[in-house]
Design a protein around this nucleic acid. Sequence first.
DNA 1: CAGTGGTCTAGACCACCAC
DNA 2: TGGTGGTCTAGACCACTGC
Lengths: 254, 254
Amino acid sequence: MSIERSPSEYRQVAALIRDRIKSDFYPRGTFLPREDDLADELGVKRNVVSKALAMLRSEGLVRSTRGKGTKVNPIPVIRRNATGRQAKHARESEGNRGAFDAEVRKLDMTPQVAVDVTRAPAPANVAEVFGINEGTPVLVRSRKMFADDVPVQIATSYIPLEIADGTQLTEKDTGPGGTYSRLADLGHEPKRFSELTQLRVPDSSEAGVLSMDTSQRVYVITRIARTTEGRAVEITESILPAHQWEFYAEWDAE
Amino acid sequence: MSIERSPSEYRQVAALIRDRIKSDFYPRGTFLPREDDLADELGVKRNVVSKALAMLRSEGLVRSTRGKGTKVNPIPVIRRNATGRQAKHARESEGNRGAFDAEVRKLDMTPQVAVDVTRAPAPANVAEVFGINEGTPVLVRSRKMFADDVPVQIATSYIPLEIADGTQLTEKDTGPGGTYSRLADLGHEPKRFSELTQLRVPDSSEAGVLSMDTSQRVYVITRIARTTEGRAVEITESILPAHQWEFYAEWDAE
DNA sequence: CAGTGGTCTAGACCACCAC
DNA sequence: TGGTGGTCTAGACCACTGC
């Protein structure tokens, strides 16, 4: 129906380099030729190559460093299993780092998690779900997760201090089964979950921590865990570089 | 830890315009000032404004048309409910257009669906799942979905001809309960589902149909429906402009 | 036709890296 | 220090819209 119009030079250059990456002509983890050389090879100005590479950078295909060059992203896409993350057996067989370890190891990479626990004023959205005033202190458990030393996820969990204070939840290591098992021990077993997944540009702080560009995208996954009575006992906000992840789920009809 | 470095001009311009859109200074559906005027107002060159707008365009915040101007995206983000899409009650109460109608109407917009049914050679990935040879004809049901006349989704379903031939599945209107109910009538009730969600740039054909830019992103959702015996009886590949959607799910622990 | 955005030119300067 | 990418300049031409 619509007439084929020839795309602009920089889009053609981007498409060409994208193909070369996908066909392993530029293998994962190696450097591209420098922009001047690409421009000469393809008969375009450096600005055009630069614009094309900016496009590939925003897709997460390459990463550029001033003074060094442009390298093909060394990390493959990680498959996040959205099916059984909260399942009890998964928690107990894999320990408190949850499903992340398995997801990364499946790709023959080395997972790594750094945990930090503090108390901090509740952000507005957290306060609203917990039914407390904005700024009321809550327990904040922050995790940074790496695959082969590349940051691929930030997860920040909030728990009401009323529940967590003085318990193992305030320790870095929450013990076998992790946070949800401790909440269960305390009589607040999470049974009902909701999850909202959004896509947006990272703010500059997120971009820094995840060593991303602000032209890239992050998934924001907000999960609320509630007891059978409906009380919200934990909120986790995960930030993931979008180009680094895909989601898989399985389920049976009721 | 890292020193605050001032972002480049075009990023500052993009941030400013982004804020103006979010604060309704430039309301949804209205035109921005033209690039020359923005450049004058902000004391930068037009190229810089142009680069900033390209960024916002790739985020789906604005849409530019040569000769006309740049308009704020008139359509709000649609929330896709990933919880009960395959539930029988949902199918029967809402008819064969499924959950899409409800999702769009919830935002006070008008849903619209165009259906096209053909036979076509099975693509490689479809053939593999069905266990047939690539190129074997299969039934292909294509739907284009609109919210207030804006295309927001393409869905392409594949069904083995062996099952579908000569049945209502080859009609545009599959009747009450839709495709899955007809499959059930035929003794192939879908009971097990898997779904893979990926993010990528649209190819030029997808960009055309969804009137998108190739600097934007689409979700690709591939769902496989199987019988209790494990036979794949339907595959649906949905393409969604990523900036137009978010995903919501709820579930109970087992 | 004039008005708009999309792209490209042919430079230039700077920030950052490795040495 | 020289090599690299990131950004900006001050134009220019073109594609497309609406009159």
